[in-house]
Structures are given as structure tokens and as C-alpha cells.
Simulated assay, not measured.
Amino acid sequence: MTNFILRGFGLYAPEKVMTNADLEKIVDTNDEWITTRTGIKQRHIAAEGEATSDMALNSSRQALAQAGIDPSELTHIVCATFTPDSVIPSAACRLQEKLGISGQMCLDVQAACSGFLYALQTGRGYLCLEPDSKVLVVASEIVTRRMNWEDRATCVLFGDASGAVVLTGGEPDDGPRVLDIMLAADGALGDLLTVNGGGSAYSYKLGEPVGPEYFVEFQGREVFKHAVRNMTEICEAILKRNGLDKSDVDVLLPHQANYRIIDAVGRRFEIPEERIFVNIDKYGNTSAASVPVALAEAVHSGFIKKGDLVIVPTFGGGFTWGAALIRF
């Protein structure tokens, strides 16, 4: 049986920071309203001319350096994003070029905020087929370029960031092990959270104005309800499948969508607050990048310790959701 080892963790957030006070100047909102409803105090904004693959390059270099792996050793690059540099070529191919390598299989995965777990599971699949593989799994999102800055319900929530891991086979003691991943989706609920503009079902012509459909639109209450229920249920399911109980979990590291969602999942899952990793106050919701950024920060800060069993639930547009079990 293959051991799926996480060899290195990397994160990157753009230099520019937009605080809630900054948002007050451009939209009808205030710090108290944003903080009490979301837990967000600030978010990072990509610089002019900075692309999704540029951010992915920064987080990937950090992960590769920690793993002690040269980019030329990679066999696969899997990039989770719904905000690639371009439709063609993929963000993974752009990243490969910027890493100065060629020949590797490159693939983008689009599962919105669940993208990193979907990409990580894809990497595990390649390792099962080719046990000597060295897979770069990266999530990178410039969500703020898909924001309607006149819509205060959405523009306060999101930020830009990138996170990466290097996934290889190995022995159980070689590093953190991905024990299991469960993924799910329900396309019938897809219209509750959308970015429709630019898709083949929403044709457009040269010179037409850009409408609100080009930006994130969602029904907040419905998304909240499904997120909490599905994240909780899939956590319970993955533990049961592995013969584990809630009491075996040392750290809950959820997708950083909204503090109210994180708190609700923690309560339903009976995890005390001090064992829940939260960094949404600094980054906002960075979609697919949320989980690998949180993982990297939790590892680098010492929040996660050797021997910890970490459960990672996520939820995103599609609807998609999932959970991972990682033994550090």
C-alpha cells in the first residue's frame, strides 16, 4: 500500500492588504458589520500585472525548498483554481514554464473552494499508478478580480493567495501522511453559487459590456446551511471509514470561508475552539488556496505538532465538498 507523504508546504499572499477600513471607503459597509458576520479583518489583493501562476510560483518554490526537491525532479503538476491566467493554456502549464522545466504532466482542477482536496486526491491517484511520482499540488486564486466591488455581500469576503505541497510516496515516518480523502458533489445546487460569465452557456460578443454574471454571485443563507451540514457529515463519514472517532482528532483545519461556518462545524463536531485552526481574519476566503495556506501556516507556526491527527473539511461552489485525514 502506498504511503502518501507531504514533503513540503508553501504559502504566498500578495503584498497589498485591504483592511475593512479600506472597504468602508468604496462600499456601504463597516468593520463591525464585516467582523461580526465573517470574522474577516483584512484580505490580500494581487498587484497590477500579477497573475495566478505568479502567485503559484512563489508558494511552489517554498514548498519545493522545504521538501528538498528540485523542480526538475517533478513528474506531475496539479493546480487547483477557478481563476487561471487564461482559459488556454492552463495555470499549471504557465507555472511549469515559470519553474523553468518541461515534460511533466500539467493539469488544472476546478472545484472552487474544494479545489485543493480534489487536486490532492488527483495527485494520490497518479501515485497509485506511478509510485515513484513527485507531484506538485498547488492552489492559487485571484478571486478579487472576480468580485463585484459594488456588491457588499460578496466583496467583503474574498482575498487572493496561493498554497502548495509536494506529494510523494515513502515510508510512514518520512513525513505527514495523507491517510484518506473523501470527496462529494451535488450539481443540482450549483446555481446557489456561481460565476457564469464567460462560460459556453452564457455567450457574449465582442464589445458587449461586462455584467454582474462575470463575478461571484451567491445566496448566502442557503450556502451556509449546506456548507455546515455537508462538512460535518463528511467528517463523520471519513472517521467512520477509518475506524476513528471525534475524540481521536487533534486539530480541525477547515476551509476558511466564514468564521460563523467554521464555528458551527466545530460545535457540531464537538471540537474545542483551541483545537480549531483559523486564519480567515488575515486572508478572507481565498477559495481553493484557503486549505493549503492554512496548512502551511499551521505547520510553520507549530500549531500542528508531530503525531497530530488533522481533519480537513472543505466546501465550495458546484456544490463540491470533501474531507481529508492527515497524520503529522
Rank of each mutant, 00 (worst) to 15 (best):
D70S: 15
L253D: 04
G207V: 12
S140G: 07
L206R: 10
D28W: 09
A56L: 07
A184Q: 11
Q42L: 05
F116H: 05
I69T: 05
K16T: 15
S53C: 02
I5V: 15
E171K: 15
I238K: 00
A80K: 02
R267E: 10
T314F: 01
Q121Y: 06
F218L: 15
C235F: 11
V265D: 00
K98G: 03
F303W: 14
N3Q: 13
R43Q: 10
P176K: 04
A184K: 05
V265H: 03
Y283W: 15
T314P: 00
D28F: 09
A164R: 01
Q219C: 12
M231L: 04
I45W: 07
V165C: 12
R268T: 08
R268N: 10
V251Y: 03
Y118G: 03
N242V: 02
F116T: 00
G187R: 05
L74R: 01
G169L: 05
A188C: 13
G163N: 03
R260D: 04
H76N: 07
C128D: 12
Q96D: 06
S60Q: 12
F269I: 05
L6M: 11
S140Q: 05
R260I: 13
L64D: 06
A184H: 13
R241P: 01
L6T: 05
H255I: 10
D54E: 07
G198V: 14
